[in-house]
Nucleic acid binder design. Structure first.
Length: 428
DNA sequence: TCTGGGGTCCTAGGACCC
DNA sequence: TCTGGGGTCCTAGGACCC
């Protein structure tokens, strides 16, 4: 019997709920959140789901539905969602020490095993505390492994009888629930693996759980990751709570453009801007990068079957986190990649070969060393931007007009991170 | 005309070494 | 002309996640 218990806390309809906290008029209304560039639907309130708004639907294809059902559209407001996420994670840390933020709207926690009655009570306490402290509704799934906690959470959320909290530890209904769980609803089993398993006659989570009797077969079919999933379905935890603060191994910044871009100057501004963002993330985790990748894309929908992705790698002689140096390298890549006759829709910057800044060996003869004075300069830029708002200080090469910028026509205020955009309360 | 933006891990296969 | 076996490291690509 394992000594630890895992719980997954997941915010319900996170982006839509964040919008509602600061605009109470949105309560009870169907809300849909758009991706960057207002391109497609990435989040929906329950009312919007019921109205038939599909996840991932391109906005231009469902305009009639939006009008007919009076759906409120919002552009993604990551400054707001990111800050609300931070508040949720802090609330959880008040309740229990081992917290792993898993995504912007989810966290795993691990705690010692309690008797079943106390587990139920703890689950409810988490739910009410997060609601009180942040205004956000969450669901809580408790189980002996992370994979089962995911299933518990999903069931708690979709099945009103559980009132948002479900504990699967020592729960006699577990196998019945697994029999009703489709393969694609298991964490780690996507469409590809699910199809392969289906052909083998395995059609639900319970049947997959039973494959524990032939581990070698599972390993061959699904690799070690699949084997871990099977063990976890059996209540044998194989996935630990991960330590926060581990440095990222790759940092990517990419955006689609508001409209097709043909001008090289626009592209070089966009690349400078994306490099600035990526390098700031790099410095925030006290790292340097040794490889820069630049990718340009044309419209993959209209260029069906023909090439639409053009990429190049730039090995940095010396690992660096200096925005200015990275921009120069990025522009050298652009010189090689750019073709006059193409209409570009998207650019991406990726930094890899990431090392801790303390581990960098200085090259006595190179002009490209990431020196202490460069580091200090970048530090000052980051400090100013943290204090006075992102982009307060920026490199001129990122451009002024930014004709390539994202479309965000339905953006709400940065209620929690910008002094001049705080929510206003009207007192009658 | 209009279709997001990030990440992680694993495996296979090639290059290279002894 | 024939031509072993084992190891490491790196990269590309696949699969999955939100």
């Amino acid at each position: 019997m394992s000594k630890s218990v895992y719980a997954l806390i997941d915010c319900n309809n996170f982006y839509a709920s964040c919008e509602r906290v600061f605009d109470p008029q949105l309560r009870g209304k169907p809300i849909a959140i758009l991706s960057n560039n207002d391109g497609c639907i990435i989040a929906r309130s329950d009312e919007a789901k019921r109205a038939g708004v599909e996840m991932g639907a391109p906005e231009f294809k469902i305009r009639d539905l939006i009008k007919e059902k009076d759906i409120v559209l919002k552009s993604s407001n990551y400054a707001l969602y990111g800050d609300m996420s931070r508040r949720v994670m802090e609330t959880l840390r008040h309740l229990t020490p081992k917290v792993e933020p898993y995504s912007i709207d989810e966290a795993f926690i691990e705690f010692p095993k309690l008797i079943a009655k106390d587990l139920d009570r703890f689950g409810k306490e988490i739910k009410t505390t997060v609601k009180q402290w942040t205004g956000l509704p969450v669901s809580v799934g408790i189980a002996p492994s992370k994979t089962l906690a995911k299933i518990a959470n999903e069931t708690a959320k979709s099945n009103p009888q559980h009132k948002g909290v479900l504990n699967l530890v020592d729960n006699s209904q577990l196998d019945n629930l697994l029999k009703e769980t489709k393969l694609t609803d298991i964490w780690g089993i996507g469409a590809g693996l699910s199809q392969r398993l289906f052909k083998e006659g395995i059609q639900n989570a319970f049947q997959l759980k039973q494959q524990v009797s032939r581990k070698e077969w599972v390993r061959n079919k699904l690799s070690v990751k699949g084997l871990r999933t099977v063990m976890e379905l059996n209540g044998e935890p194989c996935l630990d709570i991960e330590h926060v603060g581990d440095a990222r191994k790759g940092i990517m910044t990419s955006r689609s453009f508001g409209k097709a871009v043909t001008d090289k100057k626009d592209l070089s501004e966009a690349i400078a801007q994306f490099i600035s963002i990526a390098a700031e993330k790099l410095r925030a985790q006290h790292s340097v990068a040794s490889l820069l990748h630049i990718t340009l894309r044309t419209n993959k929908y209209s260029n069906y079957k023909s090439k639409y992705k053009y990429g190049i790698e730039f090995p940095l002689q010396m690992p660096t986190a200096n925005t200015s140096h990275l921009i120069k390298c990025g522009h050298a890549c652009l010189d090689k990649l750019y073709q006059r006759d193409l209409r570009y829709k998207k650019a991406a910057v990726m930094l890899t070969g990431i090392l801790p800044e303390s581990e960098v060996q200085q090259d006595l003869f190179s002009k490209n060393n990431y020196t202490a004075s460069e580091h200090n300069l970048m530090q000052k830029v980051d400090d100013i931007n943290t204090k006075y708002g992102s982009g307060t200080t920026h490199f001129a090469s990122t451009g002024i007009e930014k004709s390539w910028q994202m479309k965000q026509e339905h953006l709400s205020a940065k209620y929690t991170t910008q002094w001049d955009e705080l929510a206003e309360i009207q007192v009658d």
